[in-house]
């Protein structure tokens, strides 16, 4: 307040990069009004929506505001896609999950980081007749389901060589071919 008449009436704004501020007359509270790009908050201590970091180092080391890193598994038209301090992704898409949407959700397999959408997370879809476990449980990368005895294939949909007649909940039967008359 320059109207009081003492040498310290005007003080520098407590804002980064000498940006402007405004003082609320009654409370004396000072609000930065023109924070650097990507920053916001009373003292520009926060990151804007779509960015994360700790630009003033309020809870540890200084971390400039950077864009949310969600491995292209969020929609840029969405709001609040990551936590503005930790950067934890909050709106993972395409069946991905994790702090950076970096892995497939349970029940899905594939490569969450792959650039092409079809290579990303696909449903396990284990064959209910051939899988010994749950139809939505498979290896997160390979997609291999847990199969019943002598059942094979990624999704447990067919019998091993020498076996036939896949029966739900039982597995496959040995062929029992007559060794004399068979060609294999």
């Amino acid at each position: 307040n320059a109207l009081i008449g003492t040498p310290v009436d005007c003080q520098p704004c407590p804002c980064p990069d000498r940006t402007s501020c405004a003082q609320i007359a009654v409370t004396g509270q000072v609000v930065c009004t023109n924070c650097p790009a990507g920053q916001t908050g009373m003292r520009c201590q926060m990151c804007e929506d779509g960015y994360y970091g700790d630009p003033l180092g309020q809870s540890g080391a200084v971390q400039p505001c950077v864009r949310c890193d969600c491995n292209d598994n969020v929609d840029l038209n969405a709001l609040g896609i990551c936590d503005h301090i930790s950067g934890r992704c909050l709106k993972c898409l395409r069946h991905t999950e994790g702090d950076h949407c970096q892995r497939c959700q349970r029940g899905f397999y594939g490569d969450a980081l792959n650039q092409t959408a079809v290579q990303k997370c696909k449903p396990c879809s284990c064959n209910p007749g051939g899988a010994s476990g749950h139809v939505n449980e498979c290896h997160p990368q390979t997609g291999n389901c847990q199969c019943l005895g002598q059942v094979t294939g990624r999704d447990c949909s067919y019998c091993e060589v020498g076996f036939f007649n896949l029966q739900p909940g039982v597995g496959c039967e040995r062929c029992k071919c007559n060794p004399v008359g068979s060609s294999s």
Binding site: V31, C32, T33, T40, M46, E48, L79
Partner: peptide
């Protein structure tokens, strides 16, 4: 000018 300062908020 600003009608309201809500510096810690993301208003949509």
């Amino acid at each position: 000018k600003a009608l309201l300062h809500l510096p810690e908020k993301v208003i949509i």
